[in-house]
Amino acid sequence: MINLKNINKSYSQGGNQFHVLHDINLAIDAGEYVSIIGQSGSGKSTLINIIGFLDDQFEGEYQFNDTQIQTLKRAELTPFRNASVGFIFQNFKLIRTMSVSDNIALPLLYAGEKRRQVQARIDEQLTRVGLPDVGDKLPTALSGGQQQRVSIARALVANPSFLIADEPTGALDSRTSAEIMQLFKELNDQGTTIILVTHDPNVAAATKRTVEILDGRIIADSEVSS
């Protein structure tokens, strides 16, 4: 599904040229549960920005199913991202002034659907993440773990090809973290492709494949022995 060939990325800051990604080659198939692990500054965030169609300024080839991403215009990338990726962030990034349901509805509304047509799917996703009755509440009325579940529901609602979870447990305590990781495992068992970014080897160990990045290079890519 995801096929990266010789991806290089550099940017300049204060007159200095930084080469953040060196000749990245990475293939991820549908249904995989992959963790990308690395220190901060290793380039893992840059890599997932490219994988998640947030960043189209790179050299090399990115083939997603049958599409060559580097040939798309920026305006074409937005609907592509809307339909293909679900994002889960470290600090949830829910919009605080909107109800849980409205937050989850956003990807569908931006895809051009009508508000009253989407309620059933929102309720379905909320049930899936174990929060069937919070639709009318504001995100601030929920605990951190619950907020992260809501953001997972939001990532799932448009039925994307894969999820990108950027340090999903970074803001949670260890017990809640374990619950979220269990939820990811269940989703993967149901067939959802998940790419999880972390600096925590324990979190990475809960996935099925780990890709280790150091100084912009992939230094290890291995199946997790269970």
Partner: peptide, 16 residues
């Protein structure tokens, strides 16, 4: 700013 970022990531166009 955060809200704008979330909306853009979730499929909002700059025009939206």
């Amino acid at each position: 700013t955060q809200e704008i970022g979330v909306r853009l990531a979730l499929g909002a166009t700059p025009k939206n």
